[in-house]
Simulated assay, not measured.
Amino acid sequence: MRVVMFGYQTWGHRTLQALLDSEHDVVLVVTHPKSEHAYERIWSDSVADLAEARGVPVLIRNRPDDDQLFERLREADPDIIVANNWRTWIPPRIFALPRHGTLNIHDSLLPKYAGFSPLIWALINGESEVGVTAHMMNDELDAGDIVRQEAVTVGPADTATDLFHKTVDLIGPVTTGALGLIAAGQTEFTPQDRSEATFFHKRSAEDIRIDWNWPAGDLARLVRAQSDPYPSAFAFHRGRRIEVLAAVVSQGRYGGTPGRIFYREGEGVVIVAGADARTGRNHGLAVTRVRTEDGRELPATEYFTTMGGYLTSRP
């Protein structure tokens, strides 16, 4: 099939690589310009560079809504558009243009975790599986019929970086497998159960601010979800920002006020957590490694030389 590819960052790069290595003919690539957004500098393999190295024409767009782009797409005469990590709305006149429509590749197990940063949100929420879905595009974001879907298990110590590496390896087989079904003439696919759909926004600095009213298990997953190279979860100690690089749920239960720097336990320092911490039924968050405002990384037991005081969400 003649394929036009819309994509960006490493997700788009892996998709394009799979298409270039397949029996299909990539006739045009559309990608975004480079960005300085904190999350878009991560996993930033260039779709444009790969396409140009393989002699495929490239168009750079923030939004695919201009007449010049539409005419180039018509001239390319695609059988299908394949999209992965395209960051803005694709209008119907474009996604419906090819003979077989548009196949979108999304890094979640749709219908859950449509939208942005699905791996991070899924990890924070304690999901047991994550994955990649290939679905037909329609008027609603990430809502079309599912062509192919593959899942991987979330391990008890997995970080968002671990899950990225697990799922990015699924992109190639999910993409080419879905295209194989379409090329073979299959037209009926699995409708999404919209009653199960969830939709998430882009991550921002506010989303990595630690709220000590959260249960310790949720906070431990937040820390793992914001693992390097993602921006680290943070709080404030004596008015200065401190990043929590590693933490686990405490073995013991600790009562009192959320955010209290309370007790050394093993290799960590336990911070009281949970909105109902006053009951004494909660585990705390045992912080094991931190980074200070000046960039120093050190064990929490070295940073917190005395117990007492609080970690707060704001200075």
Rank of each mutant, 00 (worst) to 15 (best):
S35C: 07
A122H: 05
I80D: 04
G101F: 03
D45P: 04
W121H: 13
E40M: 15
P78H: 10
N104A: 13
S35P: 10
P92V: 05
R72K: 11
N104Q: 11
K34W: 07
V47P: 08
G55W: 09
N125V: 04
G101E: 00
A51V: 11
G55R: 05
A114Y: 03
I120L: 14
F116I: 11
R72A: 03
S117N: 15
E52Y: 03
V82S: 06
S46Q: 09
A48K: 14
L73E: 02
R63P: 02
A38D: 02
N84R: 13
N62Y: 08
R63D: 03
P98G: 00
L110W: 06
E129T: 14
D67N: 11
A48C: 01
P91V: 01
I81Q: 04
L119D: 04
I90R: 00
D65N: 12
R41C: 05
L59D: 00
P91T: 07
G101D: 00
L97R: 03
L59H: 01
E75W: 08
N85H: 13
E71K: 06
L69G: 05
E52A: 14
W89Q: 08
V47G: 04
D65C: 03
H37K: 15
S117R: 08
V82A: 03
W43S: 02
A48D: 09
E52D: 03
D79H: 15
H100S: 09
L59N: 02
L103Q: 00
N85W: 11
K34V: 13
S128R: 15
E127T: 14
I42E: 01
D65M: 09
V47E: 07
N62V: 14
L73H: 02
D65S: 07
I94K: 06
P111A: 10
R87Q: 13
L109H: 08
D67L: 05
N84Q: 12
P118K: 13
P57R: 11
P57V: 11
R63W: 09
D65R: 13
R93E: 12
R54A: 10
H106S: 10
R72V: 04
L119G: 05
G126H: 11
E129S: 07
P64Q: 10
E127V: 14
P92Q: 13
P64Y: 00
E71W: 06
A76S: 11
P111M: 11
A83C: 10
P111T: 09
F116G: 00
K34R: 14
P118Y: 07
H106G: 09
I42D: 00
A96H: 12
N84A: 15
I81M: 06
E52F: 03
I94S: 01
S128Y: 08
H37G: 11
P91R: 08
W43P: 02
L73I: 14
L50V: 07
I94F: 06
L59C: 06
N85M: 05
R54K: 15
K112H: 12
P64R: 09
H100Y: 15
G55D: 07
P78C: 08
P98D: 01
I94C: 01
S128G: 06
P98I: 10
E127N: 12
I124E: 06
A48E: 13
V58M: 07
H37M: 14
I124A: 00
V82G: 06
S35H: 09
T102F: 04
K112P: 04
L103W: 03
I80E: 01
D66S: 06
A122R: 14
L73C: 07
E36M: 12
P91D: 05
L110N: 00
